[in-house]
Amino acid sequence: MGMVQVNGVSLYYEQYGKSLAEGKAVLVLIHGYLSSTFSFRRLVPYLEHDYTILSLDLPGFGKSEKSLTFVYSLHNYGKLVLGFLNRMGVKQAVLIGHSMGGQIALQSALQNHSMVKKVVGIACAGYMGPVKRSLVRLSYIPFFSRMLKFYFDKKDIAASFLEITNDRSLITKEMMEGYLKPMYALAFYKSLIRLIRHREGDLSSEKLKTIKQPVLLMWGDKDQIVPPHVGERFIQDIPRVEYKVFQGAGHLLPEERPEEIANRIRSFCLNNHGDD
């Protein structure tokens, strides 16, 4: 666990498993929207014995800086992940992204074909288009950050977790607190406003077709946030793709099926995909 400066912003990261000096394969975990490294806590134990694992909080989220100068576009997030790898001395890694983190991993893959060896997208966001202009205009209203905080404070949190998690037994006080804790500070909402303004549309079909790395996509068939049909569109666009659907699982696959996901990741990493 520590902080590191990358591209002018302070990033919080966690490291597990093998040391970087051992030269083992490196997995980089990238969380999704309104999330943090906390979302991978159930997945890490199934992978840390075989890999070096780096999990980071993206700017604006978790314990990373809530910067008011960082450009919160998906492209720049992808660039930041590459900068993080460079800062940590990692020459090549497998990027594993959940939801928005999957889209960021694909951005990184497009930007550097050698540093990003493979990509794993878990309920990977895509085909959503840019943020609505009406919401962007609203973001310029004075005290909009306080309005956002008020909205989230009043939101029925338990109902929200039921939407993203198919297994209700997982929804505990500890789980909800882990996800919600970073959202208590007003600074979080100020950076969220910048994400609303800066977030461009997701990668186009034309861009996705140029991804050279092998990509593994995993979905829950009950996902209400990023439905499986998004994965089916990815299959048509990404040249070297594997697709796995888990029955009876929702959007938070790292919470619901950590062991099964880890096994799939391990097999994907071991497969040379005709590269050797």
Rank of each mutant, 00 (worst) to 15 (best):
Y189V: 02
D57W: 09
G178D: 12
P45D: 07
K154E: 11
E174K: 13
D276S: 14
L54A: 01
R137H: 10
H273F: 15
I53S: 08
Y13C: 04
R41I: 01
R240Y: 12
I261M: 13
F152K: 07
Y51C: 07
H49S: 15
R233K: 15
Q213Y: 06
R137S: 12
S99V: 04
A123M: 01
V120E: 01
N86D: 14
D153S: 09
D275L: 15
I164G: 09
Y179N: 10
V116F: 01
I157S: 09
E48W: 00
K190F: 09
S191R: 06
G250I: 00
N272F: 10
L192F: 15
G89R: 12
L203F: 05
M3V: 05
R264F: 01
R264P: 00
D57Q: 03
L195P: 00
Y13K: 03
F234Q: 03
L195M: 14
V119F: 06
D223Q: 08
G121M: 08
H31Y: 10
V136M: 13
R133H: 09
D167I: 04
L135S: 06
I235H: 06
L27S: 11
G121K: 03
H229T: 11
D221N: 14
D223G: 06
T210V: 13
E206N: 07
G8W: 01
D167L: 05
M147Y: 13
V71W: 00
S67I: 13
T37G: 04
Q103Y: 10
L180A: 12
N76D: 14
E177K: 14
L110G: 11
G129Y: 06
S35L: 11
S99M: 04
V81K: 00
D202M: 09
V26D: 05
S204R: 05
S108C: 09
L217T: 02
V9I: 11
V71Y: 05
L68D: 14
S55F: 08
K212S: 14
T165R: 06
E259G: 05
K154R: 15
F38T: 01
R168F: 08
P258G: 10
L217R: 05
G97C: 13
Y140K: 13
I157G: 00
D223N: 07
F234A: 04
R133N: 11
S134H: 08
L106F: 05
R146S: 12
L170T: 06
H75S: 12
V90Q: 09
Q224K: 15
Q236G: 10
F188H: 13
V6P: 00
A262H: 00
R168W: 10
V26P: 02
L252W: 08
M183R: 14
F38R: 02
R42M: 10
V26S: 09
I193D: 00
F188W: 13
L43W: 06
Q107P: 02
M3C: 02
P182D: 13
A109P: 01
K149E: 10
A123D: 12
S204A: 10
A262D: 04
S134R: 12
Q5A: 14
